[in-house]
Amino acid sequence: MRSRLLGDGRLVLPAVLFVVTTIYLYQAFQIHPQYDEGIVGPRFLPIVVSIVMYAGLGFLVFDILRDRSPRPERAKLEFRNFLPAVAVILATLVYIAVFETIGYVISTLIYVFALLFVFKFDQNVLWRVIYSIVITAVFYILFHTLFDVRLPTLTEWF
């Protein structure tokens, strides 16, 4: 019943976008122009875009509700299918959080090692470590040496 109410999960994204648009529209009404431009001030396009978004979402929801055919089994959204993607998101969040603090080399080494695990790298731990070092080194040379990019280092703290 709950699944049908949410259109087999297909209504979740439109619902999220509806909430985002509503917050956006509310914020649009809070914009105070510096000078009067008539009807088309800084809040004009955001309001129009919100209306277009609502219309698009309306059509989308109508299509989903009208479509009574059951979704193919493989197309159903199951949380466990998303676990590797969630793992990548978490690893990336940690990477970004520590990137400037502990520097490129250590953070990238750990990040690549974690990603090799998520992407089911079919070699033993030693090879994972070796490939993590190689990838970190290759892109250090690419960014730092070839493209002259100043990458954060742990030594900046000392």
Partner: peptide
């Protein structure tokens, strides 16, 4: 190997 390819892409994209 996907693991090597996408780990490399992740580093290039984020850095």
């Amino acid at each position: 190997r996907k693991a090597l390819l996408y780990s490399s892409i992740a580093v290039v994209a984020l850095v």
